[in-house]
């Protein structure tokens, strides 16, 4: 099936140099799969004048150069880019980019690395061990990367371990921190301020600006959290991760 068989996407401009393709109005696996298919297609077949694209929960935004697209002003850039996109959408196979990649993220839960683990437990009438087993017992889908370099927006966390954001955000959240905010969980790839409840930390480097593929995680990946001890954390911290 091609994406064009059903009228399932909307197009609209984001300013004068980007176009948004929207595949629905809620966060769902089926919409995510369409986003992923279009992203995989654009990776393989970038068009002349395209600068880059950004996949999100329900959208793919394509940035383009109106000067190039319009062949130095000879065509209407937006109309031209709409034609290009309509044409390429007839070639997108929904199976594209579907093979899931599973990434295990080792996490040392609690203690100095997870100062809010107790809070999350108390909030949900659970023991810290139960929070860990629920958090590490699920598979998570990387819906998109945003907010910070390599920061994954993950879907699939159990409501049983949800917790509100901190009223006053921390000014520094250490690199590798694993946190919970509402029903979302995520990992901080770089040191940044933030309001998430911190339950653990990974020794894994999620972001390395000097690699060809600087972000360990990509939209569409499956993530599993694997509990490790503090000793293991320290050992693995010494290792150099090349992903």
């Amino acid at each position: 099936m091609t994406l064009n068989d059903v009228p399932l996407f909307k197009m609209f401009p984001l300013g004068d140099a980007a176009i948004v393709l929207q595949f629905g109005e809620e966060i769902s696996l089926s919409i995510h799969n369409k986003v992923k298919a279009v992203a995989a297609h654009l990776d393989k077949y970038p068009f002349w004048g395209m600068i880059e694209y950004v996949p999100a929960f329900t959208t793919v935004t394509i940035y383009y150069n109106p000067w190039v697209i319009s062949e130095k002003g000879n065509y209407n850039p937006y109309e031209k880019v709409v034609d290009i996109v309509l044409d390429l959408m007839t070639h997108v196979e929904e199976e594209e980019g579907l093979a899931p990649r599973v990434v295990d993220i080792p996490v040392c839960y609690g203690g100095e690395f997870g100062p809010d683990l107790e809070f999350v437990a108390t909030q949900n009438q659970l023991t810290p061990e139960e929070v860990i087993s629920i958090h590490a017992g699920a598979e998570y889908l990387v819906y998109m990367i945003g907010f910070a370099p390599g920061f994954p927006y993950l879907g699939g966390m159990s409501h049983k371990i949800s917790a509100p954001r901190k009223e006053t955000p921390r000014t520094v959240i250490p690199k590798g921190s694993v946190g919970i905010a509402g029903v979302q969980t995520g990992v901080y790839p770089i040191e940044t301020p933030g309001g998430w409840q911190l339950i653990g930390r990974t020794p894994l480097r999620l972001f390395n600006p000097f690699l060809d593929s600087p972000s360990l995680l990509k939209a569409g990946d499956t993530v599993r959290f694997v509990p490790i001890s503090k000793e293991e954390f320290n050992e693995r911290k010494e290792q150099v991760y090349e992903h």
């Binding site: 880059e52 950004v54 990367i145 593929s213 600087p214 972000s215 939209a219």
Partner: peptide
């Protein structure tokens, strides 16, 4: 720096 926004890089 273009081409890396999909990795969250501004």
């Amino acid at each position: 720096r273009y081409g890396y926004q999909k990795d969250g890089i501004i």
